[in-house]
Write a protein that binds this DNA or RNA. Structure first.
Lengths: 258, 258
DNA sequence: TTCTATTCTGTAATATTTACGCAATTATTT
DNA sequence: AAATAATTGCGTAAATATTACAGAATAGAA
């Protein structure tokens, strides 16, 4: 959605293509420099930042919509995506939008009952992506983005701070049940890297020896014969996820501590 | 909703009061005679059974709607209620309804674009209720109900078999993270009762000695000085949930096996 | 009193988790 | 070539948690 015509058409006629009253918000997690980050977008004309999101096409399965929205934004299709909650306890989310605002920002003439001003429930998805492979697309609505440390999330539009908080909580729950990492790390990684990833996600220290023992015992990762050169230090071995066991664990679930 | 006038008004004008395109489906679990049951309703005119559910009022918080729908149906307000998934991958749920059907069943004259024929996402909630305290209300749409063993769920309307399956899966997941039982059992209960409840929910045998040891160690239940008389057998002691520890565990989560 | 069905209780073996420190490695600096 | 600084890699013992398992006690009915 890049030209003004397209935007105006979306505002005026979008309800013909998309379901009103329901939207998708995505919390996209990436990992970089030992930090867990989420992708935030600058919505044109708004002071604050917000989550990437979008609407569901009228004949589009929900899951497809979630993947589409993510792909439009990140160009990634290989990622971990999971629905985690529907937000709808604040019935007035739409009150932050108005015809005046739309005229000003987009030059779109709308009436009070335009579909975008109506109450909208938001279905929250969280995604795990390989930060280095992401290629963010901005558009007419969103003219800027940044990767924000999860510990330093600014005030967000609507009730999206709650969405982020819940996403993090659900990610931390998920990490006890399913293997996490495949979509956040490069193909090959070192123990210190994955160790640090888990510590970052859980927000607490994990004994490195016990941690690697655990992953190896579970069969989730396997040691390669290569090492990485990391400057004036001992060269760490590289590891890889064990595809078969990883998939199995994803399906079956695991119960463990780290 | 009991008179035909009310129903017709709902069909024709419901979209003014309720959000279209979104509904709530509740899987209400009860426990009786060592069986885990769910509440099914007979929808008037349909051959099959379906889940209780309803729509969200335009200015009603989502959570409130879920509680309201449950209360209208069961008259209970003290229960465990948890959102677990949004179903929307089958965009054609509404195709099972038509103007002809509505004219026939309810005497309501509708057009193809009536709000009830449009695609509707369904937000799944599961509830845990004390079977003995429930007082089911039927209405014009639903003229019968029954408590159905979770292992013998018949073919349900729309994609609701999937909803039930997922609810059960999420309940089984929940039982590892939060104390469950307070809303399924009477105030005072015996070890064999709660033991059997857990076995039933998890669908597997649990060593009774280890099980009670676990609950006691976690501090979730406490032994009372009373016993229950159960016929020609040794009288079991009664237990109660430890309110404080139970709430704590609900909030903090627990990780354990049984 | 006996019978039957059910509750109640403890311990030993096994498995898992936790705690913990030092030698090896690497490139850079001296 | 040796010293340095920062980092990785590795093993074991103690503590804790889980599992497996059986027989005595009880209550009412016969």
């Amino acid at each position: 959605m890049n030209s003004q015509e397209e935007v105006i058409d979306f505002v005026i006629n979008g309800h013909k293509d998309y379901l009103p009253h329901v939207s998708i918000d995505s919390v996209i997690f990436g990992y970089h420099h030992q930090q867990l980050k989420i992708l935030l977008l600058k919505w044109i004309g708004h002071i604050g930042w917000g989550l990437p999101g979008g609407f569901i096409k009228r004949r589009e399965p929900l899951t497809d919509a979630a993947y589409r929205i993510l792909k439009e934004r990140t160009r990634l299709s290989d990622l971990f995506l999971q629905q985690f909650h529907v937000f709808g306890d604040s019935p007035y989310r739409a009150q932050e939008r108005s015809p005046a605002e739309f005229r000003e920002k987009y030059g779109a003439v709308t009436s009070e009952d335009n579909w975008l001003f109506q109450r909208t429930l938001s279905i929250g998805y969280f995604a795990l992506v390989d930060y280095s492979k992401v290629d963010i697309t901005t558009d007419f609505f969103t003219n800027d983005f940044y990767w924000c440390d999860v510990n330093e999330v600014p005030f967000l539009l609507f009730d999206q701070n709650e969405v982020v908080e819940m996403a993090l909580k659900m990610l931390r729950l998920a990490i006890y049940h399913q293997p996490i990492g495949y979509n956040l790390l490069p193909e090959k990684f070192t123990i210190p890297e994955i160790h640090s990833l888990y510590q970052t996600i859980l927000g607490k220290e994990l004994d490195q020896r016990n941690f690697s023992k655990k992953l190896l015992t579970l069969g989730l990762i396997k040691k390669l014969d290569e090492r990485r050169s990391i400057g004036p230090h001992r060269s760490p071995y590289l590891y890889q996820f064990d595809k078969a066991n990883y998939e199995e664990a994803l399906k079956e679930g695991i119960v463990h501590t780290y």
